[in-house]
């Protein structure tokens, strides 16, 4: 089982968290998982789809790092999908929480870039 979890985490396709009760796995998937900006620091735009699934019905909320309010909450359901357009310039973490705000699963949207920040116009002006 540990090998399975490691494999999923390594491939970065799906992050799975097993709460204390191992019989109720929760999955949270994100697509796409990375957004690439041309220059470090500039905003990356991404149309995201988040999908979660749980074995048991309950109250679940999807949260985003650096944001106090949940993105969306669901009542008495076992699955949900959320699509959103996001503009960001650092990694963003999404988490699925239960009604006690325990994190059941999480995943990360990676911010990447091609050219590092530079005062040097030879780099800044690369793309003219």
């Amino acid at each position: 089982m540990h090998k399975f979890i490691f494999t999923l985490a390594f491939t970065g396709i799906t992050l799975v968290h097993y709460p204390a009760d191992a019989s109720t796995p929760v999955t949270l998937t994100l697509s796409p998982q990375q957004c690439v900006a041309l220059h470090q620091g500039e905003y990356c735009h991404s149309e995201l789809t988040l999908h979660w699934q749980a074995d048991t019905q309950g109250h679940y909320c999807l949260t985003q790092s650096n944001r106090e309010q949940p993105l969306k909450c669901w009542q008495k359901t076992t699955a949900g999908t959320l699509t959103l357009a996001l503009k960001f310039n650092q990694n963003v973490r999404f988490a699925l929480q239960d009604n006690q705000q325990n994190t059941l699963a999480s995943t990360q949207l990676t911010y990447a870039w091609v050219y590092n920040k530079s005062k040097n116009t030879r780099v800044r002006w690369r793309m003219f």
Partner: peptide
Amino acid sequence: PQDPHTESKGF
């Protein structure tokens, strides 16, 4: 996000 990166000098 907090990773320090040296300034690029070229490509």
